[in-house]
Write a protein that binds this DNA or RNA. Structure first.
Length: 353
DNA sequence: AACTCGGGGTT
DNA sequence: AACCCAGAGTT
């Protein structure tokens, strides 16, 4: 049977080619969970240092649950998709009702915030040996090529088909290693480009390889183009402090901090900003001095292009600071979780001590 | 079913 | 510039 041969070959390949990774030293449930959240839409190479710093600061679920969200976001800073950090923290609090232990079944893991079908399957199989397929982007590509699937892997039909096929393939004796083997194969051999079919352990069984259509698979539905937003930040410098603001809307960077913002839908020159009502509400009647205005810098997100510019303004004093803004001592600004581009600006403009 | 949520690496 | 990454949540 083709299935048995596939399992044997891929598990054998994995035993010889598995990468040494921090969370593989000790696949305790917490370690597996944390690593899987960090690795969502994130490369292993990028996630490793975040995993290590989280394990150091929050060695168990209880310590994570007792942290402030702001501490968790600060440790997550720079990794992106910050809802992962908020949900990780919320899930740790959820688990206080379970003696700070992760549940062991796929079905119960799904109830945790931030844990969807992939992550629940990964934890259940790796930490608890439940035979459920963990289908991530790597696995979708491997299965799509192996079976020559033409349906887009990000369509409902394609996903259902791949779920079914990977569910048939999974090794029920060692589901954790099988799932990791599939992902490892996709990450290191069956890659999007520069795939290494000649060294693939299952190339003799692969439909795409035999039909010479590896380069055509997997098929995907393209996403729509990104929009461009113009962020004109007001870095209001009171000498020993800056004005900062916690982002609270359902927008990018929720619960991270930035500066008072004049957002425009198109390029805005300095005159336009000086005449903006937001600018006037901050500075009319005060002795504002413009220290520096940066050029617009392009900051790329998945669905947005941000053009970001910083107006560094010195003001001796301000009255009537609206309550949503925080006067933050300069010695404390590096304790706040901030988006990458804000961190870059702060590092360039202010010393860390 | 489509859209939104970051940042970084590769091609 | 386009695509991808050990995807999940919302609309």
């Amino acid at each position: 049977m083709k299935t048995l041969e596939f399992r044997k070959k891929i598990l054998s390949w994995y035993s010889k080619n598995r990468r040494e990774l921090p969370w593989r030293d000790n696949p305790a449930p917490y370690n597996v969970w944390l690593s899987e959240i960090i690795l969502q839409q994130t490369r292993v190479s990028q996630g490793i240092i975040y995993f290590n710093s989280f394990i150091e600061k929050f060695p168990d679920i209880k310590s994570l649950a007792h942290a402030n969200e702001q501490e968790v976001l600060k440790l997550w800073q720079g990794l992106g998709y910050y809802s992962r950090a908020r949900n990780l923290h919320a899930a740790a609090k959820q688990l206080s009702a379970n003696n700070y232990q992760l549940p062991s079944s796929y079905k119960s893991l799904l109830k945790l915030k931030g844990v969807g079908p992939y992550t629940a399957a990964a934890i259940a199989s790796i930490a608890f040996k439940e035979p459920v397929a963990a289908v991530d982007g790597n696995v979708m590509r491997v299965i799509s090529r192996f079976y020559g699937i033409n349906d887009p892997v990000n369509s409902t039909k394609g996903k259902k088909l791949i779920d079914m096929l990977s569910g048939e393939l999974i090794d029920t004796e060692n589901p954790g290693d099988f799932n990791q083997a599939m992902m490892e194969l996709g990450a290191t051999v069956c890659t999007p480009k520069n795939y290494k079919c000649p060294i693939c352990p299952v190339n003799s069984l692969c439909i795409a390889f035999s039909a010479n259509i590896v380069h055509e698979l997997p098929k995907k539905i393209k996403r729509k183009k990104t929009i461009t937003r113009y962020f004109n930040y007001l870095v209001i410098d009171l000498g020993n402090s800056l004005i900062m603001k916690k982002r609270y809307n359902n927008d990018i960077w929720k619960n991270l901090y930035d500066f008072p913002l004049i957002e425009t839908s198109a390029y805005a020159d300095e005159t336009a900003i000086f005449n903006n009502p937001i600018w006037k509400s901050w500075f009319s009647g005060s002795q504002a001095t413009i220290l520096n205005v940066t050029d617009y810098k392009k900051h790329l997100l998945t669905h947005q292009v941000l053009m970001v510019r910083f107006y560094h303004i010195s003001v001796p004093q301000l009255k009537n600071i609206p309550p949503e803004f925080h006067k933050t001592d300069k010695i404390d600004i590096f304790d706040l979780p901030v988006p990458k581009i804000i961190e870059c600006f702060l590092s360039e403009s202010f010393s860390k001590i």
